[in-house]
Design a protein around this nucleic acid. Structure first.
Length: 271
DNA sequence: CGGACAACCTGGCGGC
DNA sequence: TGCCGCCAGGTTGTCC
């Protein structure tokens, strides 16, 4: 669920309460969620480090400490929020990491399905170094996208979900971008014409920007750091709309499986 | 390079 | 009301 717009919203919501804070302790009850370093080193190494800045790279939340970097991936059910030590929250039942801050607050990482991952590294590129370009960066131009997609032969949906091809898209926004560009999820990348590539490029950027503007899609688990829902789900055209009339032609939206993922499309509008 | 599939997990939901 | 079984999906790793 948390894709680029959701993670971007989380990052923006965490900056205020976290930047400038020093971590004074950490506890966790699911060692499997800690990728690196080894458990015995983790607490000793992070305690005493101060948050310098918070950024997003793909779907990773990158918290720059000094000298290390704390990186968190929410996967599907992860939630991050900062609350006073004595605050009781509904999502606390799934908290597996709890970072104590120097101002009587805590950064809590709740994750019911335990898919989320935590990294503490000296060099961010250990985790995010091989990811594809950021679709909303200024230097991700139409020319850059064209150069990247030319020479690829795979089907569009799995290609757009591939984080090494393009960073940040997930199941929701890929379905939306393909609908907006009138391209079928099974369309092969090497059959796209110039106009198709241009429409797809614009659609990717548009759906992601709209997702951020609406502060993410709370289809089920995703919440903003303040616990409230985003509203991007209200603007979705096809995702979660199986059987509903296509906003373009009125015929029913279909749900199928592409690349082992639930896929929503209008078979009449998307070719 | 690509595609299929299993694995990691557990809440929520449909069906009975 | 309660139980069973399946579905959801981000990422990695394996295999062909």
């Amino acid at each position: 669920m948390p894709e680029l717009p959701e993670v971007e919203t989380v990052v923006r919501g965490l900056r205020g309460p976290l930047v400038g804070r020093t971590i004074t302790g950490v506890s966790y009850d699911y060692p499997g969620g800690l990728v690196t370093p080894d458990g015995p080193i983790f607490a000793a190494r992070i305690v005493g480090q101060t948050v310098q800045s918070i950024e997003r790279r793909a779907k990773y939340i990158v918290i720059r400490l000094d000298p290390d970097t704390l990186i968190i991936h929410l996967k599907m059910t992860g939630r991050l929020y900062v609350v006073p030590n004595d605050h009781v929250d509904y999502a606390d039942r799934w908290v597996h990491f709890n970072f104590q801050l120097d101002n009587g607050h805590q950064l809590r990482f709740s994750d019911s399905r335990k898919f989320g991952r935590v990294y503490l590294v000296g060099d961010q590129s250990e985790v995010t170094g091989r990811l594809g370009p950021e679709p909303l960066d200024d230097d991700f131009t139409l020319d850059a996208f064209r150069a990247r997609i030319q020479g690829r032969s795979g089907t569009l949906k799995p290609l757009l979900l591939n984080q090494f091809f393009l960073a940040g898209m997930g199941n929701i926004y890929v379905d939306e971008a393909l609908f907006a560009s009138r391209l079928h999820p099974l369309r092969r990348a090497d059959t796209l014409r110039e106009a198709d590539i241009a429409r797809l490029y614009e659609a990717i950027r548009a759906v992601l920007r709209e997702g951020i503007r609406r502060e993410g899609a709370s289809v089920n688990w995703y919440r903003k750091p303040d616990g409230t829902k985003g509203s991007a789900q209200d603007g979705l055209q096809v995702y979660g709309h199986a059987g509903d009339p296509c906003p373009n032609c009125g015929r029913p939206i279909e749900k199928t499986v592409v690349g082992q993922r639930g896929t929503h499309l209008c078979p009449d509008c998307q070719q």
